[in-house]
Design a protein around this nucleic acid. Structure first.
Length: 252
DNA sequence: AAAGATGATTCACA
DNA sequence: TGTGAATCATCTTT
């Protein structure tokens, strides 16, 4: 897919989350984080997500991740100082070595970092869910506008002898039709094969578009004729033998 | 609901 | 790598 929907922001978040190696699933704990993160992936009843919607939800997830992370950080610090205070109190009744304190702090930090890992994992999952739903939504087929098909058909039937638009032509068509270049490519791919399979079925359409382009060509000729009366007459000759006109006269 | 139309995807090939 | 062909999935028409 050349129009990759993967948002650079999303990739950054993914990479950030995955780079540190998310640990294996540890059940229990971090449930609140999972709930918070996945809650951000709510979708409409029709299960479709607009691009802006998608971005909004993505930043929502990111925000949840960061606030949760901050909360854990704070909780970790608070708990550590709490334990330190307890140890200090205990030191009045029994001797406590610095090594024991260090060990305690280590245990606490390990515990909290494992919780943070779970947070990362659940955020990752939430992003994945969001992304897959977004992709599903994009997968949904929607017909092009009438105007767009008109433009595409005009090109197709006026280039019937070689209906292979160049990359530049595709880009221009895409721009005119407000679709992507790959959609233009798809359209032409489908059109060529379907036209070839049943030329008879498309005859009417072909005539229609040949006539349509002929009319514009005729108008151009008329303009050229008028122009040639005041300027050089060579232009008129060129217009008269345009392929569109030629085809038009063959059909009618 | 069935049939037809149409945009997208997949795969093979030159 | 662009294309043809087959096919899928969804939209539109009947």
């Amino acid at each position: 897919v050349d129009e990759d929907p993967s948002d650079p922001q999303l990739m950054r978040l993914d990479n950030m989350l995955l780079a540190e190696g998310v640990s294996g699933p540890e059940k229990g704990g971090g449930a609140a984080a999972v709930a918070a993160a996945t809650a951000a992936v709510g979708v409409g009843a029709d299960n479709s997500i607009e691009h802006s919607d998608y971005r909004a939800k993505l930043s929502q997830i990111r925000q949840i991740y960061h606030t949760e992370l901050e909360k854990y950080e704070q909780a970790c610090n608070e708990f550590t100082t709490h334990v330190m205070n307890l140890l200090r109190e205990q030191s009045r009744t029994r001797p406590i070595s610095p090594k024991e304190i260090e060990r305690m702090v280590n245990i606490i930090h390990r515990k909290f970092s494992s919780i943070q890992m779970q947070l990362k994992q659940s955020t990752c999952e939430a992003v994945m869910i969001l992304r897959s739903r977004f992709l599903d939504a994009r997968r949904k087929r929607r017909n092009f506008s009438k105007q767009a098909t008109e433009i595409l058909n005009e090109y197709f039937y006026s280039h019937l002898s070689n209906p292979y638009p160049s990359e530049e032509a595709k880009e221009e068509l895409a721009k005119k039709c407000a679709i992507t270049v790959s959609q233009v490519s798809n359209w032409f791919g489908n059109k060529r094969i379907r036209y070839k399979k049943n030329i008879g079925k498309f005859q009417e359409e072909a005539n229609l578009y040949a006539a349509k382009t002929a009319v514009t060509a005729t108008q151009a000729v008329a303009a050229a004729v008028q122009n040639s009366q005041t300027n050089s007459p060579t232009h008129c000759f060129c217009f008269c033998f345009s392929p569109c006109l030629f085809r038009f006269f063959r059909f009618v």
